[in-house]
Structure formats: structure tokens, C-alpha cells
Simulated scan of single mutants.
Amino acid sequence: MKKLLELACGLLSGLALFGIMVLTFFDVMGRKFANHSIPGSLEITELLMVVVIFGALPLVSNRGEHVEFDSLDPYLPGWLRKLQSVAVHLLCAVLLIGLGWLMLRTGAQFTETGETTAQLKIPKAPFIYGMGVLCALTGLVHLFMVAKPPVDRAEGEGAAL
């Protein structure tokens, strides 16, 4: 399951980031050499950034690569660190699943009203639905992480590989 998560979310985020790179390249080249930019390039970039960020969110949580304040960890007893880890993962799970549910409701509202982007008239609902699903998936990742022991890191060390 972990491999599927990494493949799907990594591919989704990677392709969206590559799309931003290609779009920016051709937009800059068009402005530089043809004195004309790609119409709606800002809207497309914004939508692709949503895909990059929310597509990577489950991976960041699964790898423990999110920003954390761990200055006091060396001074806390093991049982308290375990309790803290469980509480943080449960809180993150509840908040992310709740946020996912709210986004799915918003996506349904956008579908009903036909909400689109201003310039290119791209429907917003699929992106909101995607954000909701990926938030809920990230919440599930945190639920699975409740059972894992807290990670010990050396000073200045990033997430373990």
C-alpha cells in the first residue's frame, strides 16, 4: 500500500510540477521572442500548484518530512514522547479528514453552481474534489502513523530514509 501511495502521489505531483516547468518555459520564451505570453498561464500555474501541494501532502506526512518543533524531545521521557506522537497524529488525522469532508462539500457546491476560473473558464470542482480526497488520504496516513513509535533524529538530521 505504501508503494502505491508513493507511486500515485509522487507521479501526480511530479507531473504537475513538470507541467508548471514546461508552461513557464514556453510562456517566458513567448514573451521574450514573440512578445506574447500564453493566455491563462497564471490560472493554469495556480491549478497545477494545487495539484503539486495536495498531491505531495500524503507523502510528506508518511515520510515525516513536515515542519516540526523538536527542541525539547531529548529532555522528554519516552512515554511522554509516545503520548505526544499519538496525540499529534490523531489531531492531524481528525483535522485533515474534516477538512477533506468540507472540501468535498465545497466541490459539490461548485459543481452545482458551475464555478470556473476567470479567464479560461476551467471548472474548479474537480480540483476541489481532488484536494478533498488528498486531504482525507493524508488524514488516513496520520491514523496509520498513530501506531508507529516517535522518530529519534540527531541534531540537524532530516527524516530517516
Rank of each mutant, 00 (worst) to 15 (best):
E112V: 06
D70E: 10
V141Q: 06
D152Y: 12
F54E: 04
A93F: 02
L90F: 10
S13A: 15
V50M: 08
A8N: 10
P74V: 02
L99A: 13
A8H: 10
F26L: 07
Y75Q: 07
M21P: 07
L143V: 15
L23Q: 04
L59E: 04
Y129F: 08
R31G: 14
I38M: 12
I122C: 07
G19E: 00
L12P: 05
M49T: 13
M145T: 02
T116G: 05
E43Y: 06
E155K: 12
M103G: 08
G107S: 15
Q109C: 03
G132K: 13
V50A: 10
H142A: 14
I44T: 06
Q119V: 11
K2T: 14
E155I: 13
K121G: 01
E115F: 08
S85H: 15
M21F: 14
E43T: 04
L42I: 12
S85E: 08
T138M: 13
V50G: 02
A159D: 06
K2S: 11
V67Q: 07
H66Y: 04
L95K: 00
V146D: 09
L17D: 00
L140A: 12
F18N: 00
V67G: 04
G158T: 08
A56N: 02
A16T: 09
R81M: 04
K3C: 01
T116V: 14
E112C: 00
A16V: 07
L15M: 10
R153A: 09
M1N: 14
A159F: 04
P74T: 06
H142F: 11
V86T: 06
A56I: 09
Y75L: 15
L161E: 05
A147N: 09
L80I: 06
G40T: 04
Q119M: 08
G78P: 12
V22D: 00
T117A: 01
S37Q: 07
E112W: 05
T45W: 03
T113E: 11
T45R: 01
G78F: 06
T117I: 02
L11G: 12
S13Q: 02
S71N: 13
E46A: 14
L15P: 11
L42R: 09
P39S: 03
A147L: 09
G156S: 13
I44M: 14
L47S: 03
K121H: 14
L23M: 05
E6C: 07
I38A: 00
G114V: 09
F127C: 12
K124M: 13
L12K: 02
E155L: 09
E65R: 14
S71A: 15
S13D: 01
S37I: 04
G78C: 06
G107V: 03
A160L: 15
A154C: 08
A56P: 12
D152M: 05
F110I: 00
F25C: 12
H66R: 09
F18G: 01
L91C: 15
H66F: 06
Y75W: 10
L140I: 14
R153T: 04
I53T: 12
V86R: 11
E65A: 15
P126A: 08
S61D: 06
V51C: 07
M21C: 09
I38S: 02
F26D: 13
